[in-house]
Design a protein around this nucleic acid. Structure first.
Lengths: 145, 145
DNA sequence: CACGATTAAGTTGTGCACAACCTATATGTG
DNA sequence: CACATATAGGTTGTGCACAACTTAATCGTG
């Protein structure tokens, strides 16, 4: 570290900037599917396991209900998911893919794999970087008040 | 890669999640200074070189005028910076720290250094991770339409 | 069974990111 | 010099992130 703080030398800025670069890379690809990046993540979670509760989706994506609820509202308005309040526990809402929502999987699941090529890194390097970032994140969350 | 796409296996999600974890870590520290994380980044850039133009700040932080302008407006309202339209070229606005803005450097510049400790990593490991992320970002930006 | 505590989801308000657009000033070419 | 073009900064509108709060349903303990 230097005595003067420089934006470009800050690890936190590198992360911040990288995350925005990735959503920028995804944007034109997802535009074709009519999706934003967070909406895409919700669909990925549902393609893996349909019928999750709102809370479960929030846990999977590290998001609270204040973010997930409006996201789901927009996905429902787009006809990609359906929300059902459960009879067994009326507090719970489960989220289900519509046929249109299911149909997007074929094109959608191709997109993340293109990141490796676009980053001029091998798949192995990307996965190693991912694991390192995940270890970092876990520690940071543990040490956040 | 697996046949089923999983949120937790996606490198892009790892980045997305890490960036939010970092701003979450910063939040309580910056709250004491009355700053948000993007506002803090603007101040860091100005502590390094005061009197930058709006465009120069945007380039430093990879942000366009639609993001920087309102950010500066809030910082000005908080009394931390001042905007001056230049006589030499009236299109240009330079941004200058007020005394209050300068006074925040002492406390502010301590914060980023605490990330290493909070991440249970050495400074060297953090810097290596930062460099790897920056290489990744550069490639991604180069290969974004 | 009653009632306070907890839980699930949603709402409201603020700030950031970004596309699209606008205005004013400056520049360059004929 | 005139006029098309480029540039700097700002505005508007949409969506996400998140804190704080609300509402409704459920749970747990006496």
């Amino acid at each position: 570290m230097s005595e003067t703080l420089r934006v470009r030398e800050m690890a936190c800025f590198a992360l911040h900037s990288a995350a925005r670069a990735v959503t920028g890379y995804y944007r034109p690809l997802l535009d074709r599917l009519g999706l934003t990046y967070p909406q895409f993540l919700i669909l990925v979670a549902l393609w893996e396991a349909d019928g999750r509760t709102v809370t479960a989706l929030g846990e999977e994506l590290d998001l609270d209900s204040g973010t997930v609820s409006p996201l789901l509202k927009r996905l429902e308005a787009a006809g990609l998911v359906e929300r059902r309040r459960e009879a067994a526990d009326e507090r719970v809402v489960t989220v289900h893919l519509t046929e249109d929502g299911k149909a997007l999987e074929k094109d959608g699941c191709e997109i993340p794999g293109t990141i490796a090529a676009a980053s001029d890194m091998t798949v192995e390097e990307i996965l190693a970087l991912r694991d390192q970032i995940n270890r970092f994140t876990e520690s940071i969350r543990k040490n956040t008040n």
